[in-house]
Simulated scan of single mutants.
Amino acid sequence: MSESIGDVVLPGMKVEGTTEEVAVKIFEKIISPNTEMLLKKDPQAAATFALHIMGLGISQFASCVSTKQFKQQLEIITHNMVLSLKKERGELGS
């Protein structure tokens, strides 16, 4: 069983907009602030929290598309994210 991380703040809010806008608002208003709060207290707990959020999101996406679409999209997203991280972290060779 996982260790309790303490209070998670879910601000009272109404979220409206396109699917992308709603997803961004939920991330910005709920997930990101709680990850940042955890990062200050316990970086490993923050990483675990983010990993669980990622896994739940990926699982939800997988239930909405075909296996082929899931595999293709996950490969594209993963490739682009790794490339972006390498650029940000100066890990790309000149």
Rank of each mutant, 00 (worst) to 15 (best):
S4K: 10
G6I: 03
V8G: 01
V9L: 08
V9Y: 11
V9F: 08
L10S: 03
P11Q: 11
P11G: 06
P11D: 05
M13F: 02
M13V: 04
K14V: 15
E16L: 01
G17T: 08
T18A: 03
T19V: 11
T19P: 09
E20H: 08
E21L: 01
E21G: 03
V22Y: 10
V24C: 01
V24F: 14
V24A: 05
K25I: 01
E28A: 14
K29P: 03
I30D: 01
I30F: 03
I31C: 00
S32W: 12
P33N: 05
T35Q: 08
T35Y: 08
M37D: 06
L38Q: 00
L38F: 01
K40L: 12
K40W: 14
D42G: 02
P43V: 06
P43A: 02
Q44P: 03
T48F: 04
A50Y: 03
A50L: 01
L51F: 10
I53W: 12
I53F: 14
I53Y: 12
G55W: 12
G57V: 00
Q60G: 01
S66Q: 04
S66H: 10
K68E: 12
Q69I: 09
Q69A: 06
F70C: 04
F70G: 00
K71Y: 13
Q72A: 07
Q72G: 05
Q73R: 14
E75R: 14
E75A: 11
I76A: 04
I76F: 15
T78D: 10
N80S: 14
N80T: 11
M81W: 15
L83G: 06
L85K: 15
L85S: 10
E88R: 15
R89T: 09
G90M: 00
G90A: 00
E91K: 14
E91S: 03
G93R: 12
S94G: 12
S94D: 11
